[in-house]
Amino acid sequence: SDGDTSPTVSMAELDHLVQTISKSHLETCQYLREELQQMSWQKFPQDEVESYQSKPREVMWQLCAVKITEAIQYVVEFAKRIDGFMDLCQNDQIVLLKAGSLEVVLVRMCRLFDSQNNSVYFDGKFAGPDVFRALGCDDLIASVFDFASSMCSLRLSEDELAVFSAFLLLSADRSWLQEKLQVEKLQQKTQLALQHVLQKNRREDGALNKLRCKVSALRSLCTRHTETLSAFRAVYPDVVRTHFPPLYKELFGA
C-alpha cells in the first residue's frame, strides 16, 4: 500500500481493534468453540451418503442454498459489528456483503473441517465430497474441499481468523463502491491489525503473504460458484425462483 495514505495507528489501538473484531467473530460464529469440541466428528455412514447422492439434483441444490444462506446471515451480523462498517453508505455495505460474505463463509468452513478425513460438518454430521455428488459440480466441490484443507494447514487461531475475515469483507477493490476511499482506510487499518496479530502470535514472516494468496483463491471459488449457479438456473429457473432462499437470490442471483 502507499505509505503516504497509510493511517498511523498505535500498538494499543491495534490491540483494541484485534480484540473487538475477535469478540464480534466469536459472537457471530454459527458454532461456538465449546460446541465444536463436543462434536463427535462423526462421519455419515455409507447408507446416508447414498441417500444424499440419490436426491434429485434440484433438491440437493436447494438444501445447500439453505445452508449457505444460514451461514451468511451470521456473516452479515459479523460485518455489522466491525468498527466503521455501519458508517459506510448503505450501497457500499451491500456491495461489500454481496462480494465478500461467501468468502468469509468459506474461511469459516475451516473451523468445521476435519483434515484427516477430508470432511466438513454439514446437516448434522461430517460429509466428504462424495455426499455432494448430486449437485453435479464435482470439480467445484473438490476445489472447496482443497481450499478448506489448505486453510486448516495454516492453523490460524480464532483471532487471526477473525481479523482475516474482517480484512476480506472490507476489500476496497470491489466494483460499484461509492466511497472507495473510506473503505480503503478501513481495510488498511484492518491489514495493520492483521500484521499485528500475526507478529504477536509469532508467525513466520511469510504468513501475511500466504493469507494474501488465499484472497485470490477465494475470489476464484466465488466466481465459480456464481457461474455454476447460473448454469443450474438455466436448467431449473422455477426451482430457483420458488424454492431458493430470497437472501441467496439477492446475493448471487443477479
Binding site: 451470521y74 455501519m86 448503505q90
Partner: peptide, 20 residues
Amino acid sequence: KEKHKILHQLLQNSTSPVDL
C-alpha cells in the same frame, strides 16, 4: 432498494433474524 430488500432489512435490524 427493492433488489436488495432482505439485505436492507438485515442491515437495518438491530439484531438479525438468526438465533445468535
